[in-house]
């Protein structure tokens, strides 16, 4: 009986604790993901896209943002499962484009746009930044999953 009563309280505490972790996007350990997805770019956190987006991404690897990133079928399935299992839910905001197709770029999600609304087009184009895909340019601790406002340093 005591245990049952504690449940709603725990849920409430968990909900209260959430905002403090809202910017924590640590990438869960996965050897196949690490080897296949980080040879060409940083490890984008699975939490930043909806499961539908990851499925669409992993179904089009031979034309991956202009590059051939095709991998063998066994690994493709395993990595898809990993991404889907850790994908973001409603937190990522709207993750479909105007045609209702899943968005593939994290930088096009509603949450990303909201969080970066103060960044001008000129800032994105700075040599040290290059594009919104280059998280570590401003979020020095992005590799550790820390995208918090406090650790942002926008290079000149």
């Amino acid at each position: 009986m005591k245990r049952l009563a504690a449940r709603p309280l725990l849920a409430l505490l968990a909900a209260l604790a959430l905002p403090a972790h809202a910017d924590n996007y640590g990438v869960p350990k996965n050897a196949a993901f690490e080897e296949e997805c980080t040879s060409c770019h940083m490890a984008y956190p699975p939490q930043m896209l909806h499961a539908d987006s990851w499925r669409a991404m992993m179904n089009g690897l031979s034309k991956h943002f202009g590059s051939d990133a095709s991998i063998d079928e066994k690994r493709r399935t395993a990595i898809t499962d990993f991404l889907v299992a850790h994908s973001g839910g409603r937190k990522t905001g709207d993750t479909r484009d105007a045609q209702c197709k899943p968005l593939l770029r994290i930088s096009e999600t509603e949450r990303f746009a909201k969080k970066h609304r103060e960044i001008s087009a000129a800032t994105w184009k700075r040599a040290a930044i290059k594009s919104p895909a280059n998280c570590t340019a401003c979020h020095a601790q992005a590799a550790a999953g820390n995208y918090s406002d406090h650790s942002v340093n926008i290079p000149r």
Binding site: T38, S39, C40, H41, M42, F65, S67, K130, N134
Partner: peptide
């Protein structure tokens, strides 16, 4: 350096 992402190779 990856020509697009700048990742070290």
């Amino acid at each position: 350096l990856h020509a697009k992402t700048g990742k070290a190779i």
